[in-house]
Each structure stands twice: as structure tokens, then as C-alpha cells.
Amino acid sequence: MSTKRKLNEPSIQAVGLTKRYGSFTALDSLNLNIEGSKCVGFLGPNGAGKTTTLKLFTDLIRATSGEALVNGVNVHTRKKKALESVGTLIETPEIYPSLTPREALSMVAETRGVPAVERKTRIEEAVSEVRMDEWVDKRVGKFSKGMKQRINIAAALLSDPRIFLLDEPSTGLDPRGMSEVRDIVKSLKGKQRLIFMSSHLLSEVTDICDEVAMIDHGKLLVYDTLSNVTSRFSGGENVVEVGFLRPIDGGVNGRIAAGVPGVTSAERVDDRNLRIRFSGGASTQERLLSYLVGMNLGVISYKPASSALEDVYLSLIKDTK
């Protein structure tokens, strides 16, 4: 990861960030420097220090030592400046129950200085993005947890910030809602935003994140690109899942394993999906992709396997116990 901040790139930085509660160390000298437009998945078991980190980055708690910086500005000493371009979703916030989503979002918009002429449009866009249009004038007190979470996501989107700090944004949502959140995060990536997102869902992180940071017992275990993490901790091998438009026959996996140097195994997941392990990095990847396309089976998806990240996760977390 880069160590020098690039001009005008969004960034968040933890410098020796430590949080202790009595004798319990929730976060232990975290050093993390994330910059640029990307999505970083923040993984770790319950109590690992993920939410603590995000709370420190929003000044909801104070660091015992160290600094949390956003765009180079200390969050604790200059909160207003530091968070002016940050959209946050920490835990599952509750909204004043007597307010409607429109009013709650107006409160956020006014607090964040969204210009009055843009407020109405921005609120309607944000509410529409989280599919809550028909509830915008109903009181929040009667909403389910998932509906409130959608409004919280809308609140994070409202001021069009360049950085998003999201703490398990899919929490409380039904499968459709989770999928919609993934789509929202993907669209944010397309708008050149920095997204730092904690999650328990490895498949979600694999699907939408470019980089991954893993933490356990308050210590950072690894921070790197998804492919580097999976290859580094799986004996230099990468694992990808390939989806096909047409059904594949039983011999395809054998042909790939034999036909592409560097491929160590190709395993049929079902009649339209393969899980392929390979070593040799980008050059093997290039050959593999060319070979797959050349087979004329209609490659429709190619992504790092979530099981590969799961293997790394389980191995790293087990090692720290």
C-alpha cells in the first residue's frame, strides 16, 4: 500500500490508534493508510475492533492514544473539518421516532450544509436510491429495523461525500435489501468514492471490495488487495469463480487444467460455474482468461472466489487465537 498521500485523493489514516477500556485493549496500535477511490472491506470476528475503529473515525469514542485522520485532519480535535466530506453509518442508528424520513434527512442535510435549493432533490434522490419513496412522509417510529437502515444509508449518501465509513451496512436488511446495498456501494465505486466498510459477509466483500483489511483482537492482521491477500495466504495461488452462459460439460475442467500452464485445478461447482485455482499471478490470469473466452462457452463472470477469502480469514483468525 502506498505511504505518501496523493494530491486531492480522499484518505483515511489510523496512526498508532489505540483504544483501551480498563485492562481490555479493544484496538492495539492500529496503523492503516487508505487512500484513493476504492472499496476496502474491513473484516474480523465479533469483538475484533472493527466498530471501535469506525467509532474512532467518527469521534463517537476517544482514542487512548494515536490519531484517526480523515483527509489528513484529526477527527477528534477538528471533527467538523474532518467529517465534512464523510458519510457515515455506524452500528444501526435510531432516528427520532416522531420524524418522517423527509424530516430526518432534512435535519442531516441542513446540519451538513446541503444548499437549500438542492435539499429537496437530494433527499428525494437518496430516498429513491434506497427504495423508500413511498415511506418518505410516514413517521420513522413505525418502521422496521431494515427500513430504518435504508434511511440511515440514505442519510450517508445525502451530502454526496467523497468518503464513506460503513459499519455492516447490510445489517437488518432482507436478501433483496442486501443486494440493493451492494449495488449502491458498487455505484459509489463508480463515482470515485473511498468506501471503508466493515462486514461479516465475506461474499459481500469479495463481490464489491477491491482491498481487504483483517483485524482480530484489536490488531491489524493484513491489509492488501483482495487478490494479493487470497494468493499470499493460499500458497501463492489465486482462486477464481467463472460463470458461463451455457451449461458446461464434464470435460471442460480437465481441458482447462491441462491447457493453461499455471492452473493447478479446475473444479465444477455446478453446470454453469467453475472454481479455478492457479499460480503465476497476472500472466497466468491473462492466459486463463484468453483460454476461457476462446472456448466459446459464454463467459459471463470472473471474480475472486469468496471461499478463497474465507480460507484466508479462517486461517488468519485461527492463528491469532
Binding site: E9, E84, Y96, L99, S106, M107, R112, G113, P115
Partner: peptide
């Protein structure tokens, strides 16, 4: 500073934020 990122919105003064909090808390009350 030149290295800091421009924000999409300009955060209002603390006095304005007091008024905003008062307005919506009062509505809630």
C-alpha cells in the same frame, strides 16, 4: 490545505447547527 479534499457541501456554522438541532428536536417533542 492543498492536500485536503474539497467537500461537496459547506458545513454551516455551529450556531446554524444549534438552530437545526433545536428545530428538529422541537418537532420531535
Amino acid at each position: 490545505s492543498s492536500t485536503q479534499v474539497e467537500s461537496a457541501s459547506r458545513v454551516p456554522s455551529s450556531l446554524t447547527q444549534v438552530r437545526v438541532t433545536m428545530k428538529y428536536t422541537f418537532l420531535d417533542y
